[in-house]
C-alpha cells in the first residue's frame, strides 16, 4: 500500500507538478497566438519574441527594484515588476501594429503575407532583446525557492518519496488562473469583449453592426501584449531566461493553439495542457515508478522512457500532426479556412 502511495507521490513530484506549471505557461502563450489569429487572422511568428521581450522588460524592472532594495519577501520581486513589463509589452504590440501590421490589414493582404511580415518583426525584436540584455542565461528569481520542500513533505508524511513545489510553479498556476478568469470574464461579459468575439466570428457583420475594427484590434494587441509578458516572465522564472529558447517555444505554443482550434481561447488553454502533459508523460522515465508497483526488490532494466528528453519538441509536433490528420479544425473547432 505504501508503495502505491510512494509511486503516486513520485509521479506527482516529477510529472504532474512540472507539467501543470508548464501547461499554464504554454496556455498563456497559446492564448496570445489564438487571439491574434482570431481577430487579425494570421499566425504571428513574432509571438515567441514578444514573450521574451515582456520577460526582458520585467527583468530590467526587477533589477531596478532590487537595486533600490525593494523585495516582496518570500515572493519573487519580479511579481512587482510584472505590471510594468505588461504595460511596456502592450505598448510595443500597439506600436508594431501601428507601424507594421495596420498597413497590411487595411490593404486586406493575404494572411500568409502577414505571416512573412511577422517574421520581420521577429528579427527586429530578437535583435533588440539581444542588444539590450545580451544572449546569456539570466536567473532573476528571488525570495523563497519552495512552497514546501522534499524534506518538509517527508517529515509530514513519513513517506520515502518526497514532493516539493517551487514558488515559481505555484505562481505560474495562480497567476494563470487569475489572468484566464479575468480574460474570460472580459470576453463573455463586457461589451468590448463581446465585440471582440463578434469581430473574430464574422468581420463583415461586425462592421455592419457598427463595431469599430481599429478599437477591437487595439484591445486585442493590448491583451496579447499583457498575456505574452506574463507568459514569458513565468516561463523565465520557472526555468531561466535565455533569449533563444523563446524561438523554440513557438512550436509547442502553436501546437497548443492548433490542437485547441485556432481562434478559440478555451481551446488554447486545453491545448496548452494537452501539449505540456504529453511532453512530460512521454519523456518521463518510469523506471522507479514501476519498481514501486512491481514485486519487492524488482526493477525494470533501462529507464522505461517512451522518448528521450532530447526529443520533447517532437512530442508537440506529433500531436500537431495527429490533429492535422484527424481533425484540422482542432478539438474545439476553431477556423480552418
Amino acid at each position: 500500500m505504501e508503495d502505491i502511495v510512494n509511486a503516486v507521490v513520485l509521479l506527482t513530484n516529477f510529472l504532474v507538478v512540472p507539467a501543470t506549471a508548464y501547461g499554464c505557461q504554454l496556455a498563456l502563450g497559446a492564448l496570445g497566438v489564438t487571439l491574434v489569429y482570431g481577430v487579425l487572422r494570421f499566425s504571428n511568428f513574432a509571438h515567441g519574441e514578444t514573450m521574451a521581450f515582456g520577460a526582458m522588460v520585467t527583468i530590467l524592472f526587477t533589477w531596478l527594484l532590487q537595486y533600490q532594495g525593494v523585495t516582496l519577501g518570500p515572493l519573487p520581486t519580479a511579481l512587482l515588476a510584472l505590471p510594468a513589463g505588461m504595460a511596456v509589452t502592450a505598448g510595443l504590440c500597439l506600436l508594431t501594429d501601428r507601424w507594421v501590421f495596420r498597413f497590411y490589414r487595411r490593404s486586406r493582404a493575404q494572411p500568409v503575407m502577414l505571416l512573412v511580415v511577422s517574421v520581420g518583426v521577429m528579427f527586429v525584436l530578437n535583435g533588440i532583446i539581444r542588444f539590450v540584455i545580451g544572449p546569456a542565461d539570466r536567473v532573476f528569481t528571488d525570495g523563497a525557492r519552495f512552497l514546501f520542500t522534499v524534506r518538509d513533505f517527508k517529515a509530514w508524511t513519513g513517506l520515502s518519496e518526497g514532493l516539493a513545489i517551487k514558488t515559481t510553479q505555484t505562481l505560474s498556476v495562480v497567476v494563470a488562473i487569475i489572468l484566464v478568469a479575468a480574460l474570460f470574464w472580459f470576453l463573455e461579459k463586457t461589451r468590448t469583449g463581446k465585440s471582440m468575439r463578434a469581430f473574430s466570428d464574422n468581420e463583415d457583420l461586425a462592421l455592419l453592426s457598427g463595431i469599430n475594427p481599429e478599437r477591437v484590434v487595439a484591445v486585442t494587441w493590448l491583451i496579447v501584449g499583457c498575456l505574452a509578458a506574463v507568459a514569458g516572465t513565468l516561463y523565465g522564472l520557472d526555468k531561466s531566461f535565455k533569449p533563444f529558447t523563446f524561438l523554440s517555444l513557438l512550436l509547442p505554443i502553436f501546437a497548443a493553439a492548433i490542437v485547441g482550434g485556432l481562434g478559440n481561447p478555451l481551446g488554447a488553454i486545453v491545448g496548452g495542457f494537452v501539449v505540456a502533459f504529453s511532453e512530460v508523460l512521454l519523456t518521463y522515465p518510469y523506471r522507479k515508478f514501476l519498481a514501486y508497483l512491481g514485486p519487492e526488490g524488482w526493477r525494470p532494466d533501462g529507464l522505461v522512457q517512451f522518448l528521450s528528453t532530447d526529443y520533447k519538441f517532437a512530442v508537440s509536433f506529433f500531436i500537431l500532426v495527429v490533429v492535422l490528420l484527424v481533425k484540422p479544425t482542432g478539438i474545439f473547432s476553431g477556423r480552418s479556412s
Binding site: 463581446k194 468575439r197 463578434a198 466570428d201 464574422n202 463583415d204 457583420l205 461586425a206
Partner: peptide, 8 residues
C-alpha cells in the same frame, strides 16, 4: 449569407 455570429 454569413448574417449571424455563429459562435455567439
Amino acid at each position: 449569407t454569413d448574417n449571424v455570429f455563429r459562435s455567439m
